[in-house]
Design a protein around this nucleic acid. Structure first.
Length: 401
DNA sequence: AGGTATTCACATGAAACTATTCTCTGAGTTAGG
DNA sequence: TAACTCAGAGAATAGTTTCATGTGAATACCTGT
């Protein structure tokens, strides 16, 4: 029991976290370093809504962790504040993350969510979509107002739904007498606009802003700023921030990643009861993040995928020299299916599953020709030994072995 | 020896099938007028 | 009578199978020296 005391003590006495929430991903800071240009651009595009006029639709691109969402929300809040100061209420801002499953991954659900945000309500199912549209129109057109709809991760939604829905949204304005809608789309994919209905492209992309990735120096600035309010004095070793920034810069300048890294490193140091975050903690944190991400993916993979992965992990290491090939995996996979009483998929499908694992980075494959022995994929399992052990445990319990 | 043709063991594509989830429609139900 | 609810028909979707075609190089088979 004295162990418990030790754990609790390290949390109460050694509080070098002044305010951990600053490092969490949903925290929104007062300033956004190195994004002045973009923030100003967003602001000037959306500014007309201050006067109750319709602003141009805006489309924002950029990789994850480049501050897109943050900047847009920031500007949105400022505008909203300003409008409230002026004592008006003709502006409504709705933020919707299209990636959230079960909330916004069908046209119907997105609309339902929008209506919900506006204070209306619709049944979870049962109504035809155009009626939901009508309800939505009715709701917003009841008075003169500007509706600013921010659709985050819009590429995810379109992938699932099709762009017809965006077309409908952009066309909605022409049927409105009082209200006007401004759409702000945020996309992680730079090529998103390329395969979209031209009509949608022209109306949604009236204005476009690209968010470039941060470089290592910029990441350092960001980290410094947040670290100052997150940690107590002298809680970080020399070079900790530089190292975090360097790690994240390697991953296309993902600031979120950098902050996660710093936070996890801090948590590790805290748990250890050490007074400072050292470089070593960063490495451990990096491993841990990587590991947790991998294991999370593996755990949530569909059963058949897990069966295939199980087959690969069994072959990995103990297989005779020369690597693992598709045929080997398939045989092993059949065996595993037999043991666990699962249906056996065709080789064709397993081939696709392998390709998907490749995409996820769980395995690495290369198509090689072995001459008379045919053509196949050479497969390498990309899990570090300690992760592999853990992964096998997860697979075994998921497959009741 | 040098050149061609075969052949293997899958890769890669397209289309069709299937089970599940969504959407829509109309009948039945409810409640207010 | 209008609004709501719900079951079932029909449409969309994801996961998978079937069928078809493609592929790189080791190996087999020629061919002429």
């Amino acid at each position: 029991m004295e162990n418990l005391d030790k754990i609790f003590n390290s949390f109460t006495s050694n509080n070098f976290f002044k305010n951990k929430s600053v490092l969490q991903s949903n925290y929104s800071p007062d300033t956004i370093p190195h994004r002045n240009e973009q923030v100003e651009a967003v602001a000037s595009i959306l500014a007309p809504s201050l006067r109750g006029e319709k602003a141009s639709n805006l489309f924002v691109y950029g990789k994850t962790g480049t501050g897109k969402t943050l900047s847009v929300q920031y500007v949105g809040n400022k505008i909203k504040e300003r409008v409230n100061e002026m004592g008006k209420d003709y502006l409504k801002i709705i933020y919707l993350n299209c990636k959230l499953k079960k909330v916004a991954d069908t046209e119907y659900r997105i609309l339902a969510e929008l209506i919900h945000e506006l204070g209306g309500s619709v049944p979870a199912t049962g109504l035809p979509t155009d009626q939901v549209y009508n309800k939505f129109v009715e709701l917003i057109d009841s008075k003169k107002q500007i509706i600013l709809i921010i659709l985050d991760e819009i590429d995810q939604a379109v992938e699932k739904i099709s762009d017809g829905f965006l077309y409908n949204l952009t066309r909605l304005n022409s049927g409105l007498k009082n209200a006007q809608i401004t759409l702000v789309g945020i996309s992680n994919s730079l090529t998103f606009m390329d395969n979209i209905d031209p009509r949608v492209r022209s109306s949604l992309g009236e204005e476009e802003i690209v968010f470039p990735p941060y470089n290592a120096l910029q990441l350092q600035d960001i980290l410094h700023e947040r670290a100052n309010s997150a940690f107590g004095e002298k809680a970080l070793d020399e070079g900790v921030i530089a190292k975090c920034a360097a790690f994240a810069a390697r991953e296309h300048g993902d600031a979120r990643r950098a902050l996660d890294l710093l936070r996890v490193a801090g948590e590790l140091a805290e748990r250890e009861g050490s007074k400072k975050v050292s470089l070593k903690h960063i490495d451990t944190a990096n491993d841990k993040i990587e590991r947790d991400k991998m294991l999370y993916v593996i755990e949530n993979e569909p059963k058949q995928f897990q069966l295939v992965l199980k087959a690969i992990t069994e072959l990995d290491g103990n297989s005779e020299e020369g690597g693992i090939f598709t045929g080997d995996v398939y045989n092993k996979y059949e065996e595993v299916c037999g043991k666990t009483g699962n249906d056996v998929l065709t080789q064709r499908r397993v081939s696709d599953i392998l390709a998907e694992f490749d995409m996820l980075g769980i395995i690495n494959t290369r198509v090689i020709s072995k001459g008379r022995q045919g053509r196949t994929r050479e497969i390498k399992l990309m899990l570090a030994p300690n992760i592999k052990v853990k992964a096998q445990e997860i697979l075994n319990s998921a497959l009741d072995l």
